[in-house]
């Protein structure tokens, strides 16, 4: 726009940075570094370092209790221990949809979630509803007394049954 030239005073020419520009940049940069660093330190502060959450393992009982077709829910540990045709396995009772606690419906031999209507069969496969994944299979082992120990913190491959 040529008509604007010179209207608001002489054009400022491009110049080499002055000492003032240099120190301004240093100052702004230092503030930015300090802001980012204090943000990171605050985030680190907010991350809990020790959690007093309940232990993940529990003793489910003797393997002899789990004949094929037996389903024993454990409300507190949020898991099912199920006697299958080939062996014993444990399922997480936490719905893969949004973390509600599923329930065993003995009359339909199915596992149902009360929150959004997901349903699972006894192997944890989704039979109905919004759950995106099957219920995870949990690690089952035996302790020194021969009792079954379920670790809800360890997820194992789907279909890997435990044979005592």
């Amino acid at each position: 726009m040529p008509e604007l030239e010179g209207m608001f005073g002489p054009e400022v020419e491009e110049e080499t940075p002055t000492r003032r520009d240099f120190f301004t940049q240093i100052g702004v940069g230092a503030c930015a570094v300090a802001a980012v660093a204090s943000g990171i330190v605050t985030l680190d502060y907010l991350e809990p370092k020790v959690l007093f959450e309940p232990p993940t393992t529990y003793v489910a009982g003797s393997p002899l209790d789990f004949a094929p077709g037996v389903v024993v829910p454990n409300q507190e540990k949020k898991a099912f221990v199920i006697g299958g045709a080939n062996g014993i396995y444990a399922l997480s009772a936490v719905c893969t949809h949004l973390g509600c606690i599923t329930r065993y419906k003995s009359d339909e031999s199915a596992i149902a979630c009360p929150c959004h209507g997901s349903r699972f069969d006894l192997e944890g496969n989704v039979t109905h509803g919004p759950a995106p994944r099957p219920l995870p299979w949990l690690d089952v082992s035996q302790d020194a007394n021969g009792n079954l120990v379920v670790d809800t913190g360890i997820v194992i491959a789907h279909g890997k049954v435990f044979r005592p």
């Binding site: 409300q75 507190e76 949020k78 509600c100 606690i101 009360p114 929150c115």
Partner: peptide, 8 residues
């Protein structure tokens, strides 16, 4: 924490 009300 172990008892989900129905419906939640």
């Amino acid at each position: 924490p172990v008892e989900t009300p129905n419906p939640a």
